[in-house]
Amino acid sequence: MPRKEYQQKLDELREDVLYMGEVVQERLRMGLAALESKDDELANEVIERDYEVNEMYLELERKCTDLIALQQPVAGDLRFIAASFKIITDLERIADLATNLGNYTKQATRDLYPDVDVQGIGSVTLEMIESALAAYADEDVEACYAINDRDDDLDERCERASEIVVRDLIETELGNGTDETEVENMLQDVSRLLLTIRDLERVGDHAVNIAARTLYMAENDDELLF
């Protein structure tokens, strides 16, 4: 294959990965919106359209495999293709976590703990994904480090949110003579809220993975990979 055509395929791969990233971000926005408004219809849409992201993933996996098998790339090109493959894996997993938000929306029975800012945490994760994909598009090394640093702040927010839920449950909810059925329902809702916080924290981890692979792709630097 002539170099010009080969480079075009590499450029197309980058564009396809970025498009998949846009779709996944939209799914996460939809999941967060469904959770906030208790919108079962929107939640169902997030759940039912997960197959679209899965199909994108399989198609891009095939493109990466073909480029490696047929073109035998070396050095920077090989790192780019390998990084792209790893990044689409992280994007597919973020889409799965967005689907979880849809499921949590359908299962929740009531509002709990308004002082736990799930939407604020979700906004941070969306910003991290957007920044990570921009770093991938531009091969921006400094942005990769900034995303990694921001994950520490996200982890702290998630930890504080989880502590609020557990402490309030222990100190107030379970000690006020609530009947057994009500306690069971409450525990289920609390469990879903904690799972939501955990899943959003994982979204941040996947954003860091994207940044780490971008750094390795651009600089052959594995500092953020481990």
Rank of each mutant, 00 (worst) to 15 (best):
L28E: 11
L70P: 00
L101T: 12
L58R: 13
R62I: 02
Y51S: 10
Q71V: 06
G102K: 04
L42M: 14
M56S: 05
N54H: 10
K38V: 02
L97F: 03
E92D: 11
A75H: 12
E59C: 00
P73R: 05
I87N: 00
Q72M: 10
A33P: 01
D50Q: 04
D40Q: 10
K86T: 00
E55K: 11
Y104F: 15
L67I: 05
N54L: 09
R93F: 05
D90C: 03
L32H: 08
L78E: 05
S37D: 14
D40L: 07
S37Y: 07
F85H: 14
D39M: 01
K63C: 08
L42W: 00
K63E: 13
G102F: 08
L42R: 03
C64R: 04
L67R: 01
A43P: 12
Q71D: 06
N44G: 13
E36M: 03
N103H: 15
T65H: 14
A33C: 04
T65L: 15
K38A: 13
I87C: 00
N100D: 11
I88W: 10
E52Y: 12
V74N: 05
N54C: 06
A82S: 15
L67Y: 14
E45H: 15
E45L: 14
K86W: 09
I88T: 01
E61I: 01
A33L: 10
L70S: 06
L97M: 13
L60K: 09
D40H: 10
D39E: 06
R29H: 13
A75R: 07
C64T: 12
L101I: 09
I47R: 11
M30Y: 05
V74Q: 15
R62V: 09
D90K: 08
S37L: 15
E45W: 11
I68E: 13
I47L: 07
F85I: 01
L78D: 02
L58E: 03
P73D: 07
E52M: 04
E61A: 08
R93H: 10
E61D: 12
A75P: 00
P73C: 08
G102N: 04
A98I: 04
I88P: 00
